[in-house]
Design a binder for these strands. Structure first.
Lengths: 240, 240
DNA sequence: CGTATTCTTGACCGTGCTCAAGTCCCGTGG
DNA sequence: CCACGGGACTTGAGCACGGTCAAGAATACG
């Protein structure tokens, strides 16, 4: 429950007590390992999921096998909030690392948040952020160069991790292959490799098998046009 | 109110009576003309808007002037549902044609939909579709070629118009300059022009000053990988 | 009717792709 | 413990898709 609490209490002052009903109604899922599919395109899921541990990917596959990663999901991220409408999923979700989920029946979820305005507010905030992440992804792949895309993506993930960990670290633990990164950024694997090398030669990052050190954040921000206020929802509240 | 009614009654059986409270609490905006900004990045809007007439654009501008159109908004589309969280807008909205809006205070909107489960359901559905449109945009610009992107975009707009007009027409009234189309598809104006010409030479479309005739829908679908079930929300309902 | 914007077309260029070979790393089995 | 195999990453060479620049035509607008 910690992942969820951390996530949604950024924008709304929640107590453990607000989460109790969710906790009761939800259960931990089996553990998924790398590559396991959690949701398949076309499915109707009857659950809302929260990532407790690990990273997951939302993606679509085109007829000829091309893959587009829509976004990365990290602990505290929720999906599919939209399952409460019983619609078919237009994309798949799979585990990028070992993943532990918490799941709650859509109908229970709906009942619970309807009864607690703070929870309603919290999940609206989650939905807002989800859309913001998608919009950022659109401008990234639509109008930025390869170098900008990569730097921007690393900064975004670094920042999103910071929000759940409570502090901004210069080390981004990054369990993602270059092949996944390529499909996220609309580039080829080869070009991702070259671009990573380029960023390292520029002394902006250092790559290890565990992740990426951000050596010069200011210059990274400069070349990528990253917005430091991105996802700053600390001052959100429900209209009324 | 017709635009809104048409839009949301696809997924939920709504009567005029469901909309009455919204009608009472909302008002028609002044008319915007081409290029007028409706929302500016960084604004906190206190209103939810519905497009009654005309087309609008959501977009972001990068520091050096590059522009990315996030999506096209047509009659019946709503924004910003998210204003109920009082967050700053991370993008701008402007009129692509003469635009007439209906606006309703976020707080009133929230009160009204909370009282009517059908309305709650209807607007969840709107939010789902909004996200689906963004995801489609990501795969389009991330993993499709210029020709595929253009054909796919035309089919999407054709389909979205069909949903509000009630029937699928082979003529798409298209009030958009190639410059806007370029910024939507992550391409240059010059390349949009060449690609339109190419589609015409292939006898897939015919372009007039008023819009685009879709001459061979099947082949268009074939080359673009368009999903005909896209946004088919006719069977959605609220979990419970 | 003149000016500005949009669209078209050509020539050239460059970012990023493809193909291919080679290295590194790690897990598995002999 | 080493040999093997597979996946991930790197690097080079050549190419192509789409960008840029520029000039001219068409269209819209004041």
């Amino acid at each position: 429950m910690d992942a969820l609490l951390n996530r949604i209490s950024q924008s709304v002052n929640l107590e453990e007590s607000n989460l109790l009903p969710l906790k009761k109604a939800s259960m931990l899922s089996e553990v998924y390992t790398v590559g396991d599919r959690i949701v398949t395109e076309g499915d109707i899921t009857h659950y809302m999921f929260v990532i407790e541990k690990g990273w997951a990917l939302r993606y679509r596959i085109l007829d000829d096998g091309r893959r587009q990663i829509l976004n990365f999901m990290i602990p505290g991220d929720c999906f599919d909030l939209m399952s409460i409408m019983k619609s078919r999923s237009d994309h798949s979700v799979s585990a990028a690392t070992t993943v532990q989920l918490r799941r709650i029946k859509s109908s229970d979820f709906l009942d619970i948040i309807k009864k607690d305005p703070k929870l309603t507010s919290a999940f609206w905030s989650v939905a807002i952020q989800e859309e913001a992440v998608l919009r950022e992804q659109i401008t990234r792949i639509g109008r930025r160069t390869a170098t900008e895309r990569l730097a921007h993506m690393l900064l975004e993930l670094n920042q999103r991790i910071a929000r759940i960990e409570g502090e901004l670290s210069d080390f981004l633990k990054f369990p993602i292959t270059q092949s996944v990164l390529a499909d996220a950024l609309g580039l080829s694997v080869v070009h991702i490799s070259r671009t990573m090398t380029k960023l390292q030669r520029m002394k902006l990052i250092q790559v290890t098998s565990e992740g990426v050190y951000i050596l010069d954040r200011n210059q990274m921000i400069g070349i990528s046009g990253f917005d430091e206020n991105y996802l700053d929802t600390s001052k959100l509240k429900l209209a009324g």
